[in-house]
Simulated assay, not measured.
Amino acid sequence: MQIETPRLFLRPWQERDIAPFAVANADPEVRRYYYPSVLTHTETRTMIADCDRHLGKHGFGFLAVERKTDGALIGGLGLSTAGDEIPGGPHVEIGWIFARPYWRQGYALEASAACLSHAWSTLGLAEVIGYTSRINHPSRALMGKLGMRSDPTEDFDDITVPEGNPLRPHVLYRIKAVASDPIS
């Protein structure tokens, strides 16, 4: 799975991506809406290996996002099968994480829209979900820009997050293939 946008390449992970992605995953601000919070270099390496296995098994996955102008790894984004913590599965989810220097430049919207287009046109998916903690307003805003919608009756507690943690309450977003071109 490889996707090209005007400014970005979404591609399988390479060895050279581990160090910059580990820096992003070690930033408490980047990971403030994730549980567990920051990741070690080894945990990042394991995450990337898991992404590669998922891509090999399913033909889609969470990919490295590279900026065309300078080859910088700016983050990760893609599709994956959602875990059992999401009610009503199985689902294919879209997700992203970008290093802080690349925030607020439209990269996440550009890459996400291209990824959804790939989900409809190449993978033939009927629906993609997204989910995040209720307090993650930046990701929720991006899901809205993509045309994803939530239904309060589908909100859920993420059982992988301890009770009492403010990241436990989650909001589920959906987008159907008929709404496949949300930002053109």
Rank of each mutant, 00 (worst) to 15 (best):
residue 108 A to F: 08
residue 21 F to R: 15
residue 151 D to P: 00
residue 48 I to G: 10
residue 128 V to C: 06
residue 120 W to E: 02
residue 166 P to S: 04
residue 51 C to Y: 15
residue 163 E to M: 08
residue 172 L to M: 12
residue 145 K to Y: 09
residue 107 Y to I: 01
residue 73 L to R: 14
residue 49 A to Y: 08
residue 146 L to V: 03
residue 126 A to C: 12
residue 116 L to Q: 15
residue 164 G to C: 03
residue 129 I to H: 05
residue 28 P to T: 04
residue 88 G to Q: 01
residue 181 D to L: 08
residue 9 F to W: 15
residue 99 A to K: 08
residue 121 S to G: 09
residue 99 A to Q: 07
residue 135 I to R: 15
residue 107 Y to G: 02
residue 4 E to P: 00
residue 124 G to A: 01
residue 1 M to Q: 07
residue 25 N to W: 11
residue 173 Y to G: 01
residue 150 S to M: 05
residue 58 H to T: 05
residue 14 Q to I: 10
residue 36 P to Q: 09
residue 58 H to V: 02
residue 107 Y to F: 15
residue 66 E to W: 10
residue 131 Y to W: 13
residue 7 R to I: 00
residue 146 L to R: 02
residue 5 T to Y: 00
residue 18 I to R: 12
residue 143 M to A: 06
residue 160 T to H: 06
residue 68 K to Q: 09
residue 29 E to V: 10
residue 77 L to M: 12
residue 92 V to K: 01
residue 59 G to L: 00
residue 108 A to K: 09
residue 137 H to Y: 14
residue 100 R to T: 07
residue 184 S to A: 11
residue 25 N to L: 13
residue 102 Y to Q: 05
residue 98 F to Y: 13
residue 72 A to F: 01
residue 12 P to C: 08
residue 146 L to E: 01
residue 135 I to P: 12
residue 119 A to K: 00
residue 110 E to H: 13
residue 4 E to N: 07
residue 133 S to T: 15
residue 155 D to R: 03
residue 137 H to W: 12
residue 113 A to I: 08
residue 171 V to D: 04
residue 96 W to F: 14
residue 60 F to N: 03
residue 154 E to R: 15
residue 67 R to H: 07
residue 66 E to G: 03
residue 152 P to T: 00
residue 129 I to C: 08
residue 177 A to H: 14
residue 184 S to C: 10
residue 73 L to P: 11
residue 57 K to M: 12
residue 2 Q to A: 08
residue 173 Y to S: 05
residue 153 T to A: 15
residue 129 I to Q: 05
residue 39 L to P: 06
residue 52 D to M: 13
residue 148 M to C: 08
residue 86 I to T: 11
residue 12 P to F: 05
residue 123 L to H: 01
residue 108 A to S: 13
residue 168 R to I: 00
residue 17 D to S: 06
residue 70 D to T: 01
residue 45 R to K: 15
residue 22 A to M: 05
residue 81 T to K: 12
residue 6 P to D: 03
residue 178 V to T: 13
residue 80 S to T: 03
residue 96 W to L: 10
residue 81 T to W: 10
residue 36 P to C: 10
residue 108 A to W: 11
residue 83 G to A: 09
residue 5 T to M: 04
residue 34 Y to K: 00
residue 169 P to F: 03
residue 184 S to K: 10
residue 123 L to M: 03
residue 147 G to Q: 02
residue 115 C to K: 08
residue 177 A to S: 14
residue 93 E to T: 06
residue 118 H to P: 07
residue 171 V to S: 04
residue 59 G to Q: 00
residue 101 P to H: 09
residue 29 E to Q: 07
residue 141 A to C: 02
residue 94 I to L: 14
residue 2 Q to E: 12
residue 156 F to E: 01
residue 131 Y to A: 14
residue 95 G to L: 08
residue 160 T to D: 09
residue 17 D to P: 05
residue 93 E to N: 10
residue 50 D to E: 13
residue 168 R to H: 02
residue 100 R to K: 13
residue 83 G to H: 07
residue 113 A to Q: 14
residue 39 L to F: 13
residue 155 D to G: 00
residue 24 A to Q: 13
residue 112 S to H: 10
residue 141 A to L: 06
residue 182 P to N: 10
residue 166 P to T: 01
residue 165 N to F: 06
residue 125 L to Q: 02
